[in-house]
């Protein structure tokens, strides 16, 4: 039972981190209708800067720089590439982001090489005990931070002028533009926010109990894709639920993998994708995605 509770809390915590990534992914999709495959590289860029800078400027400053840099890179991608690409279909835009991803990820993995970079976070490997349940401090911080950020974002999305502009642009870009919404700014800010969220997620993907940032971190980040799509690519609620589903599934499957030896080693890494397939079979638009209807 204790194991179960530990796995569940860990799963929710890592799920909240996936939700952060998936949320950024969904924001970008809503604002620009681009499926951003470069998201993993944004995450890697943010995490890499934090890991490299904390010995020089201290952890908190490094974290701020990392977040700002990831936001900047994302905004630059939107400004330099996405806005200028005049293509027939959105699949092509998605492939463009793959090109961006290849460039950034290759360069960063080259810089990282075979190193495992520590994140220099103040929580280290301390654990907290509630009754018989042992939890890593980092996991609790991750859960709280993610919850705060997501709440803040959803409130901003609902009540601020920026949020209204973004929702209007997502609903009907042309009308929004006629009403004075600056579409360029809206989509650029969407990318920047997504980049910042990805950088925060990078921090929590690389702290204890994981050894640190290494070249495989961007592969870990790929698990946020099923989170985004199983919730529904155009739904912020979906991103949250998807993140949690993926996190808990992964945690449970890894935790009990000895009881499921017939499924082979490392089933925890594959389980998120299998869950996604099952959900897509039943609901092709995802759990909360709007089913696309068109008037002819």
């Amino acid at each position: 039972m204790t194991t179960f509770v530990e796995l569940l809390v860990n799963g929710i915590s890592i799920g909240a981190v996936y939700a952060l990534i998936a949320l950024g992914f969904v924001i970008i999709f809503k604002a620009t209708e681009v499926v951003n495959f470069a998201h993993a590289s944004l995450l890697l860029a943010g995490g890499y800067l934090v890991a490299r800078l904390w010995p020089v400027v201290g952890f908190w400053a490094a974290l701020l720089i990392g977040i700002a840099a990831a936001a900047l890179v994302a905004a630059a991608i939107e400004f330099l590439v996405i806005r200028r690409a005049n293509v027939a279909s959105h699949s092509v835009l998605a492939i463009v982001t793959i090109g961006v991803d290849i460039v950034i990820t290759t360069e960063l993995t080259r810089q990282i090489g075979t190193d495992v970079l520590a994140m220099g976070d103040p929580w280290g490997s301390q654990v907290v005990r509630f009754g018989g349940v042992t939890l890593a401090e980092t996991r609790i911080v991750a859960l709280v931070t993610a919850a705060l950020l997501i709440t803040a974002f959803l409130l901003a999305f609902k009540y601020t002028g920026w949020g209204v502009a973004m929702r209007a642009a997502a609903e009907d870009a042309e009308t929004a533009a006629l009403m004075g919404v600056r579409l360029g700014r809206v989509s650029m800010s969407a990318w920047a926010v997504a980049g910042a969220l990805a950088a925060v997620a990078a921090l929590f993907l690389c702290v204890f109990p994981t050894p640190g940032l290494d070249r495989s971190t961007s592969l870990v980040a790929l698990k946020a894709f099923p989170a985004a799509i199983l919730g529904g690519l155009d739904s912020t609620t979906g991103a949250l639920v998807g993140g949690l589903v993926i996190g808990v599934t992964e945690s449970m499957m890894s935790g009990y993998q000895n009881d499921m030896a017939f499924l082979g080693r490392g089933i925890g890494d594959v389980a998120p994708f299998l869950v996604m397939l099952v959900i897509l079979l039943i609901r092709p638009a995802g759990l909360f995605g709007t089913k696309e209807l068109a008037r002819v």
Binding site: H90, A94, I229, L233, D269, V270, L274, P284
Partner: peptide, 17 residues
Amino acid sequence: GAYLGIATFALIFGGQH
């Protein structure tokens, strides 16, 4: 389109497994 793109990630990871 891109939905299928993400869904087919499952093939890669499942296949590797």
